[in-house]
Design a protein around this nucleic acid. Structure first.
Length: 423
RNA sequence: GGAAAGAUGGCAGAGUGGUCGAAUGCGGCGGUCUUGAAAACCGUUGAUCUUCACGGGUCCGGGGGUUCGAAUCCCUCUCUUUCCGCCA
């Protein structure tokens, strides 16, 4: 969530930036500011009232100690009115704060200066395109047919075990999946990210911390008996490691990477876009997460983009990098780059990574702060990105690398798979 | 699933109604000593809201209550640990 300070001190700038995300927030912002003024005023009154009560209570303590019972009893009666007043003010304070927060959480993060204007994917700016799109023969097959032909991914079997969108990887398909996970993790740890293996179920507090709750509640699988949620991304448990904490500036940046399965209900998405590996309820992903000093978060973002690019390129897949437009960005992001690879048989770009700087938006909700050398405490910046999401990488690999002899495994993966062809 | 104990500052751990935001130890920071370091010694060291500032308020797992006054008493919720049972 945005901070009150941010909103109040830069009101016009805030409004202008929100407009880039297609949000007209003038009315909301005015209300927020008015509520904050009221809140401060109320707190002053409440503080005064409580201070007086405290003073009287101390006085009574002394009087009792001196054995002056009568005077003590007299002093007691003075607190009655104060207590009532405090209670009223406290209620008012609580209500005002709640109303204010309810409004603040409706505001998305401010997009960075360089975020393209526009509301749809059409308005995204392609910042780079590289790699060669292979020319496949007429008989080129989409990955779901290849998966069946080589018996490496069984979608129907997944339906039997669980339901649609829970594929079973078999033989070299399973081995390829495992190889990719290990390869991605190795790339990340080599670049300085600390590997963690977190729980894949989280409690409610963690869901709130990274903002999946309350708004995206319907997108997560919920184990109601214990009130746990299946994670939609490793971002949730990994970022929550730092919930409610203060990191010393010298320990920044914090760089973490994690492999987890991810679970998404994807309620409401159907159609041909969801065939095969294109959209699943359970999939594997390796994530990178960073906590940075506010001064360096955009450098960090560039580093992360460069890092992800290196991995995508190493697989020999044609890719492009998009800078998302205001309307296409997520609620929490200030700047997002998407990576897409070209899936040659489907003849479409598939998103395989999304790398974002959340600035202090997520940190504010998480209460994730850093302490600078001069002991000042301020919100840190958080960033994360996929590095990488597996299914669409696999889809593109299968489609782009299909030959009459079989599917060729990229060279960098062979040490991990220990086979160079799926036949 | 059954039984018991517990939740206090970065950590450990005292504190059962007033002067307690909280002893003590460890850790951290600063200093003395040292060529440097260690040891020793001295000092210092929570967060948060509000105020231009002085100051004031809040926080001892969460919520509620008793009281002039609550870390301390009562109710309630959550979580953790230990033992037994079951078990990868």
């Amino acid at each position: 969530m945005l901070t009150i300070k941010q909103i109040k001190e830069n009101k016009e700038y805030t409004l202008e930036r929100l407009a880039v995300k297609g949000v007209d927030a003038r009315e909301t912002v005015d209300k927020i500011i008015a509520l904050d003024d009221l809140r401060r005023q109320t707190q002053q009154q409440l503080d005064n009232s409580l201070a007086e009560q405290n003073a009287i209570a101390k006085e009574i303590g002394k009087l009792f100690a001196q054995g002056k019972r009568d005077e003590a009893e007299a002093a007691k009666s003075r607190t009655t009115a104060l207590k009532e007043l405090s209670k009223e003010l406290e209620t008012k304070m609580k209500e005002t704060t709640e109303q204010m927060n309810a409004l603040i959480v409706t505001l998305p993060n401010l997009p960075a200066e360089i975020v393209p204007h526009g509301m749809t994917a059409e308005d995204n700016v392609e910042v780079k395109r590289a790699g060669e799109i292979p020319t496949l023969g007429e008989d080129a097959k989409p990955h779901w047919e290849l998966a069946q032909k080589y018996d490496i991914i069984d979608f129907e079997l997944g339906v039997k075990l669980t339901g649609a969108g829970f594929p079973v990887y078999k033989g070299k398909g399973a081995a390829l999946e495992r190889a990719l996970i290990t390869y991605f993790l190795d790339c990340n740890t080599e670049a300085g990210y600390l590997e963690v293996l977190p729980p894949i179920m989280v409690n409610e507090a963690s869901g709130f911390g990274t903002g999946q709750l309350p708004d995206k509640e319907g997108q997560m699988y919920h184990a109601t008996a214990d009130n746990f949620y299946m994670i939609p991304t490793a971002e949730v448990p990994v970022t929550n490691i730092y919930r409610d904490s203060i990191v010393e500036e010298k320990d920044l940046p914090v760089c973490l990477t994690a492999y987890t399965p991810c679970f998404r209900r994807e309620a409401g998405s159907y159609g041909k876009d969801v065939r095969g590996l294109n959209r699943l309820h359970q999939f594997n992903k390796v994530e990178i997460v960073r906590i940075n000093h506010p001064d360096t978060s955009y450098e960090a973002l560039d580093e992360m983009v460069a890092h992800v690019e290196k991995i995508v390129a190493s697989l020999g897949l044609p890719y492009r990098i998009l800078r998302l437009s205001g309307g296409d960005m997520s609620f929490t992001s200030a700047l997002t780059y998407d990576f897409e690879v070209y899936s040659a048989a489907q003849q479409r770009w598939l998103e395989v990574s999304s790398v974002s700087n959340f600035e202090a938006f997520q940190a504010n909700r998480l209460k994730l702060r850093y302490r600078s050398a001069d002991k000042k405490i301020a919100l840190a910046h958080t960033l994360n990105g996929s590095s990488l999401a597996l299914p669409r990488i696999v889809a593109a690999l299968l489609e782009n690398n299909q030959t009459p002899e079989g599917i060729k495994i990229p060279e960098v993966l062979v040490p991990y798979t220990r086979f160079d062809m799926i036949k």
